[in-house]
């Protein structure tokens, strides 16, 4: 076989390789088979194929479909939610790219979409993405911001609190404590905004004390919830 034939053979093989979007479509059909109505599977396949072609993760779309079907949500509502999620994943990617994360991880995109659905703006997702790297997991900080917002903390205030804590070099576990601390304050009668404000004031006071080396951080760490 001469070189041109070899080239032709290689091109033929490459032409028959399934594309990423086609693979996504197959995956979606296989994962949803028997778990969602045929009409939903078909619609989600199309959405997922389009998402995959744009380099977006397909797994959250599959999960949202499975969730809606398991909860007995009407088909058109499931499809609408999946379509909205795909749009938010796209918006989150733009925001995280603007934050300087060239290729955000699927988990970060999912966190961004989750934060957007909780009420954060694309700019706030961008800001959190920017301060999270490289020491923090953007998926985690975005989820925490979304939870604070869900608790009733205004999105801008929750993001500010997180930004201040990250800038102060707080650990990931300390960030994870925030929703619990807000809830504890709310249980004592404070509003969500007041609780977040109090935590932010604390953070400012700690920041003014100024020992921000690794050792200092350890000494200043808040006690973890049991």
């Amino acid at each position: 076989m001469s070189a041109p034939w070899l080239t032709v053979a290689m091109v033929a093989v490459a032409a028959h390789l399934p594309t990423r979007s086609a693979l996504a479509s197959q995956d979606v059909a296989a994962r949803l088979e028997g778990r969602a109505p045929a009409a939903v599977v078909k619609a989600v396949q199309t959405i997922a194929q389009d998402a995959a072609a744009r380099g977006l993760p397909v797994e959250p779309l599959i999960q949202k479909t499975l969730e809606g079907s398991a909860k007995g949500v009407p088909a058109e509502r499931v499809v609408a939610a999946v379509r909205l999620l795909a749009a938010r994943l796209d918006e989150a990617r733009t925001a995280l790219r603007d934050a300087g994360i060239a290729t955000p991880e699927p988990e970060a995109l999912e966190g961004g979409a989750y934060a957007l659905s909780a009420g954060l703006s694309a700019d706030q997702v961008r800001d959190l993405g920017r301060v999270s790297r490289p020491l923090y997991d953007p998926a985690l900080t975005l989820h925490i911001a979304a939870t604070l917002t869900a608790l009733g903390v205004p999105a801008r205030q929750g993001v500010q609190l997180l930004l201040h804590m990250i800038q102060a070099g707080r650990t990931s576990n300390e960030l994870l404590d925030l929703p619990g601390e807000v809830q504890a304050s709310m249980a004592r009668g404070a509003s969500a905004a007041q609780a977040a404000e109090a935590l932010d004031i604390d953070e400012g006071a700690l920041g003014q004390h100024g020992s921000h080396g690794e050792e200092g951080r350890e000494h200043q760490a808040r006690p973890h919830r049991p």
């Binding site: 949202k64 809606g68 909860k71 659905s117 985690l140 869900a150 994870l176 929703p179 809830q183």
Partner: peptide, 19 residues
């Protein structure tokens, strides 16, 4: 804390870290 699931109900979230 729970967050809207997009279907009119609410989901909870657990964050699993190595710690």
């Amino acid at each position: 804390p729970a967050i809207d699931d997009g279907f009119g109900r609410r989901n909870s979230v657990v964050a699993v870290t190595r710690q």
